[in-house]
Amino acid sequence: MIFDKKLNKLCKNLLVSVAVLIGLGTQVFAQDSINVGVLRFTSHSAAFIAYEKGYFKEAGLTAKLVPFQAAAPMAIAIASGDIDYGVTAISGALVNLAEKGAIRIIGGALTEEKGVDGQKILVSNKAYASGVRKASDLKGRSFGLTQTGSSFHYMASQIAKKEGFSSKEISLKPLQKVGVIIGALKSGQIDAWSIVPHIAKALHKSGGAKIIGNVADYIDGYQITTIFTSKNNATNKRALTKNFLAAYSKGIKEFNDVMIDKKRGASAIESTTRLIHKYVYTSRPYKKAAGSIQAGSMRLQPDGRLNLTSVKHQLDWFKAEKLVPASASIKNLVDTSYVKTY
């Protein structure tokens, strides 16, 4: 059972956290060795590059990459201290964990900019045929989510808000997995969805669904993912955390230079794509994976800068939707002392 597995993991992690939080012995880190949680997405490439190119080592860190299947278990693993640093979308779970004093956001990663290819709004062929051509037509339609309180949920309500109707007028369908959402969209069981550009384009091209808009038009400077760590690391291991951010930023810069701004030429793109392919789309041959990796590359925040305005906006939305306690504060969520915020 999907849910059971999660619960199991949760319990296991929680048990570890008991040990840590009760204070049975002080938390022990081997000499500056860290565990970095990653998902096998192109948006986590900065970690792959920093690891493969030895940027962590240069910063005096013995790093280990720990892959996760989903964002939520990674957040819990950081809360429990099994993992030191990670990158994930801002979600209700993240805010709730921060409120409980378990984690802190220390920087930004994936971001949405006007003019740069970003997340797309998709509708099913069935909905398209019945007249859904622009986001304002989504009123009264169904929208696919992974889970309540996920970034998809946030995007759906922001689209509704800007188009002038309540998010209650969209019927939200939590389907747990991206694969299931794609299936439901293709078969017309849900009307709409929003997703990163390369998946959206692939669906559009194959005729599985139609792109009808850009998320960037509805959310200003959307800070999609953030770099985060445990509260303990953020407050008590400042040197370690700074070193990690420095190495990570180096990875970000290289990724942006090579893959987004294409400053270093085709051979650099190829070699970086090969590096990323060690982690992403590993089950596909390089030739097939390369296109998806390159199409799926979106800008990461230089130096791990953080759009605090966007984070605040998201936090307010979580509160308004009663997904997190009304008392949740930005202070508990973000440690602004590490990177530039705006």
């Binding site: 957040a75 779970a93 309540t148 939590p174 747990q176 849900i190 997904l323």
Partner: peptide, 21 residues
């Protein structure tokens, strides 16, 4: 209720789990 349920105790539990509430 993992699948596209807006209401239901299973959906509620699932939501609470994914929100870490």
């Amino acid at each position: 209720e993992l699948i596209a349920a807006e209401k239901g105790i299973g959906a509620y539990v699932q939501m609470a789990g994914s929100l870490f509430a």
